[in-house]
């Protein structure tokens, strides 16, 4: 039951993009076409799940055990960068088609603050291993959902007559503001 709660909470109620403002750069940068947005979302979900699976043992069995939790930022960022690199190499070997589809999005994920944020929140909330993996996956799903919705809206906006100063990033953020309001409606799903 707790796992379902974590899933719903991380993907809808506390959506990383719309309530914690993590991962805004790809959210604004790659949301102009639905297809790109979907690929970015899937790649990010994949990396987030793996990040949760990899950083939890690093934190619990290495940093805590040797009493150096203050090194967590350095350790996490290195782990994430290495992970993205490994995933990229593996996909290039095993599935060139997928590799072409993901293209430049994979390396960009290293600097997606949502991935590091995920590792930090995981530690902050004392999740166990299974919960962490679910949390990582759910966060990725939430990110995909948000970026996909945004790209759908932006494709329609191509035909709208937007005042000049508002074009581009400005209008995207204002739409995001309305999406954040809409997502607040999910807060009723879980008490407390």
């Amino acid at each position: 039951m707790k796992l379902i709660m974590i899933f719903i909470s991380a993907s809808l109620i506390n959506n990383f993009v719309l309530t914690y403002f993590l991962g805004i750069c790809p959210f604004v940068g790659v949301s102009n076409k639905t297809e790109n947005a979907l690929n970015m979302g899937l790649a990010t979900t994949f990396v987030m799940t793996l990040t949760a699976a990899a950083t939890w043992p690093i934190y619990t069995y290495i940093l805590v055990k040797f009493n150096v939790p203050f090194l967590e930022y350095v350790a996490f960022i290195i782990a994430i960068a290495a992970l993205v690199q490994l995933v990229e190499m593996y996909i290039r070997k095993s599935s060139p088609a997928l590799y072409r589809a993901l293209g430049i999005y994979l390396p960009l994920i290293t600097t997606n603050c949502a991935v590091l944020g995920l590792a930090l929140f995981m530690v902050l909330r004392d999740y166990n291993y299974i919960e962490s993996i679910i949390f990582g996956f759910a966060t990725g799903v939430g990110f995909t959902l948000a970026i996909l919705m945004m790209s759908g809206i932006r494709e329609e906006l191509e035909f709208a007559d937007i005042p000049k100063p508002f074009q581009g990033i400005s209008i995207t953020l204002i739409i995001a503001s309305m999406m954040a309001l809409a997502f607040m409606g999910f807060a009723g799903l879980i008490r407390g």
């Binding site: 403002f21 508002f166 400005s170 204002i174 995001a176 503001s177 954040a180």
Partner: peptide, 13 residues
């Protein structure tokens, strides 16, 4: 959060 997006978007404009 909604207010943050709104203010940021308007300031960019």
């Amino acid at each position: 959060p909604a207010g943050a997006f709104l203010v940021f978007g308007s300031l960019i404009a």
